[in-house]
Amino acid sequence: MFENIEMRVVLGNLLKETLEKDKKVVVLDADLANANGTLKLRDSFPDRAFDVGVAEANMASMAAGMASYGYKPFITSFTPFATRRIADQIAISICYSNMNVKIIGTDPGISAEFNGGTHMSVEDIGILRGIPNIVIYEPVDAVQLFKSWDAILNYVGPLYIRLFRKDSKIIFKDDYKFDLFKADILKEGKDLTIFASGIMVEESLKAIEELKGIDIELINVHTIKPIDKETVIKSALKTKRVVIAENHNIINGLGSAILETLENNPVPSKRIGIPDRFGEVGKMPYLKEIMHMTKDDIIQAVKELMTSK
């Protein structure tokens, strides 16, 4: 039902519906509403969908203040400005104060493409993972975003949505059931587990397609914090080999979260992700290539693990 629809369009529609249903919902932007699909909300809700201008710190703390008043704010920006730039406001105004603020960061990792290194956050998950009391959630496609919306609304507290905003490859089927705190086993297997998030789920599926002789289990970890320990440990103990594929610095992202989860049950592992370097301008295929985040990189990691003792 979401083929060829950009995720920001889905987001805009979901927010519109939510603003209609719940008078306590407000949407704050910091001059990127047009890019994030939230600009048109102002036509229908001029009071509750508004822009603070280029002032992300003020946006975050204002949202916390509004939440303390009983409102349910969503704040949006690109991932670097929704996290790195306002880490202290998120930590103190929102998380330490336990305010019901939803943070939407778009264009994670290499998906910032032509906005280049300045806009390419390789560290947003790492920054937020170190802050107590926040949920970190990254939907893979428009279906998952749509199916997760009620869970997002029902969760009271700080929650970060790491959102690819463009046209996503549809992975999930229309009958998909979402649980915010449960990872999705997309394919069962017994030889090796790939834990993947975001755009790297598609890449992992391509790799699996070419690795027909190996029985791979594929798990989409959509919620990176708190991570679904039960599913992660169970799968790793079963397959005893783990590859993690993510669109984030290999330091402090999903890979770190998985390996921390397995600290008492260590198994051979390899991490695919941004190799601790800054981004640069380019289209996704080029960026995947130079960051070693292609299906071939995943295939190589799988093969190395399968042949090692």
């Binding site: 003020n58 703390s61 303390s68 406001q89 103190i92």
Partner: peptide
Amino acid sequence: MTTGSLGQGFSCAVGIAKA
């Protein structure tokens, strides 16, 4: 409002005034 990291409380207050 919880305050202490300077500057943030003022923004929170503006958010509260808006609310």
